[in-house]
Each structure stands twice: as structure tokens, then as C-alpha cells.
Design a protein around this nucleic acid. Structure first.
Lengths: 250, 250
DNA sequence: ACCTGAACACCGTTCAAGT
DNA sequence: ACCTGAACACCGTTCAAGT
């Protein structure tokens, strides 16, 4: 181990090959969390170790415990940061200006953009146990739920309809984004370079004629347009929920 | 079935009072995988350790390496076993007898049943990297994909339509089941008993009036009927895909 | 043929001690 | 006030040695 491992990134990204020994920026919880997220994005979750994270921050692992109670809590904080990033997305608004359909669609796109920005970290958002069973990933913060429900109710949704919409929306996002991110996130785990992508060879497909015949279609990527179509469909479904409950009230 | 667990008695710390002096059942890969799955169901993934698994099998951890290359491969095998269990479900058929809608619906129910049987293991099925990007969880085996595509094509689906249906179906299942399983799987992690379910108290909700007002609706569980409705909706969507492509051919 | 003991490298975490 | 060295318990994994 070389001694002076002080990587301190003044601004955001230090990419590869940038060993800048620098003026002692003090540790902070935010810096630790941000670095952890960047680390996961680059190396994948299994690569993130308290000791390696410390190294990256120019510090021994033990120092981290001044700012973070432990590794598990650190991961929770990373999730929180990612979720917050979604809320900060440009396209996302918290008050519908152009109808609830527009609101829902912007939200979906904003969440998707962040998910694709962090393909390796997004599964964490999906699978970390939430604080309450009704905080559903990926919209798993009180802020999110409040603003979502508030928006729909403000647009005329019944209470139950708003809750149903929240459930349908989160299911939709989770399924689509997790799968989309999986195809992207798998590529450059720093170990995968060595293992030549163990994709089932043409020989292994001998017993699977249909798969072999459709191999071309199967490996094409239409995730963007599929997301769009499924989203459109979801909006229609929400409209049904909306109307059903409206009718019930008159 | 794993009722044939063998506990080596002696002063190894056993939790349950079940000191059955064993009739030395030899180790085997299948037994190891089945025990690992049972272990995860009970203790959760983080609790599964090569050493503890060995203990449960009445054997030192090192013995496992005769049958399994390592922990990661063991987890892959657990996923494989779970996916196979879905295929073995009674309600699931591999050749449609009553139209593709019936086929798809049976499939969905079968997968859901297995997911709910293994709430702690299902996230593994969802998030473990697949062998190829087009093997989408939870239908992530060549067998699955082959029989699914085959069935739909046999029912008149266009090649592209069948692939589109596979994508839509997997997204649907993943989103819904992962969220449903999360609400169920969270409860009895053997540690959660001590931590009193850190649910946001009424005080923490002070700044979230809408959430507070809808707390009742939010914590109600309608997952079964929601699954049903969303599934019906998905089938309608697949019918659209079906028809679009049909039309394109004439 | 199947399992174990001992060992290694690495991990999360604690705490008294350094600056 | 902030960081480190040393230590502990536990982990995955290897391998020569036991039966």
C-alpha cells in the first residue's frame, strides 16, 4: 500500500488516473456518502468496503465511523441521496401545471434518468428494506409520497384513487427500470473484463430452437420506446382508476 | 423438502431444542442448495454464511467446497432452484390449452405463488446478474424463455410480438412481486424482533399532512386484487401487441 | 472418498492513544 | 477536534493432512 493516498476531489468526478495529492479537505458525512455512491457506480456494490472507501478518501477506514454509524447506515444514506437526486431532476415538478397526466409523465422520466445515471446503485434503491411497508421503491421517501399524493388529490383524485395510483406507479417504475438498468449495469463490473461475458453460445442453444430463432429480436434494445408505451398505458390505467372513483362519488 | 436436516449435537450452539443424532446423510449439491434456500427464507440473505450453512448441515464449511465452487455460485444455484420451482408449479402449464390469455394468467399466478413462498429469496432472483441481458428476471432461464415464446408463437403471435410480450410480462411480474414480497419479507428478520419496526411515528408525520391523512389507506394491503387487476390490464395490452402485429402482416 | 485443522487474506467495528 | 494503530470477531477460501 502506498502511503500518501489522499485523493481529494475538489469538484465532483475524479475519473481514472488522477492521483492529486492535495490540501486536506476535511471529511464530512456528505462527502462520504457522495464518494460511496460514485464508488458503487464505478466498482459495483460488492466492491464497496469501508476500508477501500477510506482509502479513496485519503483516510483510514476507522475515521468514517465518526460520521456514519456503520456500513449498513451508509448504504441507507446512499439510497437516500439517490432518491433525493430524483427529486432534484429538472423535468420533475412538484406541482402539476398541465394536468396530472403531464405530472406523472415528467416524474417517470425524471426517475428513469436518474436510474440510468446510476445503473449499479439503482438496485440498492429497489431492494433495501424501507422504513415502512407503504414507502415503496423507487419513490421511497416521505417527501416523494407526500408530493405525489398531494399532486393527484389536488388534481381531483379521490383519496383511495390517489393511493392506488401511487401503488400502480411504483410497481411500473420498479419493474421497468430495474430491468433496463440490469442490461446496462452488467457490462463493466471491473471483473467482467476478464470473464468473457459467458453468454450462452450457439451450441448451448441447440435445445432451444425458438430462442435461437428469435435471438436477434431478443437481444435488440427497445427499452426507451417500451418504457414510453408502457407509461402511456399506465396513464390510461390511472385514468380508469380516477373515473371509477369519481363515479362512485356522485 | 428439507426435513432431513442433520444437526450435529454436542455443545455447538443450537437454537432450537432439536438434538437429533443424525443418521449421517451424505452431503450433496442438491442438499446444500435446498438447505441454503431454506436458510435464506428463515434468516435472510445476510445471515447465510458458508460457515453457518455448514453448521446447519452438520459439517465444517470447508466441506461445502467439494460440491459448490464458492458462495457466489451457491447463490446462483439457489436462484436456479427457485426459478425451477416456478416451472414445477401445478397451475403452470407449458402448452396453452385454453388460449394464450389463460396461459399467461396461469403463469403469472404460479410465479406469484412461488415468490410469496420465498419472500426473502425472491429479491435474489430479481437482482442477481443474469447470464445474458435478454434473460429477464423472474423468468430468467432458457427453459422459461423457450417455453414462453414457443407458447405465444404457437398461439399465433408474431416473432416480434412474442418477444415484446415476454418483455412486458417480465417487467410486470418483477415490479409487482418485488413490491409485494418486500412488505411480507420485512417482518421476521430474526433481528427485527429487537428493533421495534422503526415506523415513522405520528410526530414525524407532522410535516406530511396528506400522508398523515391517507395513512389508513396507505397501510391497507390490497396486493392480491391489485395484482389481479394489473394482470388483466397486462393481458389487454398483450392483446394490443398481438393485433398490431397481425395487422402489419396483411 | 469424504471431511477437517490450520492458515491466509480480507472484512466491519471498537477503543485507547496519538496529533 | 480529528484521525490512527492495534486488536477482535467473523468471513470466504485453500490445502495438506486425517479417517
Amino acid at each position: 500500500m502506498s502511503d500518501d493516498e489522499q485523493y481529494v476531489d475538489g469538484d465532483a468526478d475524479l475519473v481514472a488516473g488522477d492521483p492529486m495529492p492535495s490540501a486536506r479537505v476535511p471529511l464530512s458525512r456528505d462527502r462520504i456518502v457522495a464518494t460511496a455512491l460514485a464508488f458503487i457506480d464505478e466498482q459495483g456494490l460488492p466492491g464497496l468496503t469501508m476500508r477501500r472507501l477510506g482509502e479513496r478518501l485519503g483516510v483510514e477506514a476507522m475515521s468514517l465511523y465518526r460520521y456514519v454509524p456503520g456500513r449498513e447506515d451508509l448504504l441507507d444514506a446512499v439510497v437516500e441521496a439517490t432518491v433525493a437526486e430524483m427529486q432534484a431532476d429538472d423535468e420533475v415538478v412538484n406541482t402539476p401545471a398541465d394536468g396530472w397526466q403531464d405530472y406523472v409523465i415528467r416524474l417517470a422520466h425524471g426517475v428513469r434518468r436518474v436510474a440510468l445515471r446510476h445503473p449499479k446503485a439503482f438496485p440498492l434503491v429497489a431492494s433495501r428494506p424501507a422504513e415502512a411497508p407503504w414507502l415503496r421503491p423507487p419513490l421511497r421517501s416521505l417527501d416523494w409520497v407526500e408530493s405525489f399524493l398531494d399532486a393527484l388529490v389536488g388534481e381531483g383524485f379521490d383519496d383511495e384513487a390517489a393511493v392506488g395510483a401511487y401503488r400502480a406507479f411504483t410497481s411500473f417504475l420498479l419493474g421497468h427500470l430495474l430491468l433496463e438498468v440490469a442490461t446496462r449495469g452488467a457490462d463493466v463490473g471491473p471483473l467482467d473484463v476478464l470473464e468473457p461475458e459467458q453468454e450462452p453460445g450457439a451450441d448451448a442453444l441447440a435445445e432451444y430452437p425458438t430462442v435461437r430463432r428469435l435471438a436477434g429480436d431478443l437481444s435488440q434494445d427497445h427499452s426507451a420506446t417500451e418504457f414510453e408505451e408502457a407509461l402511456e398505458d399506465l396513464v390510461n390505467r390511472l385514468a380508469l382508476i380516477f373515473n371509477e372513483h369519481q363515479r362512485g362519488h356522485h
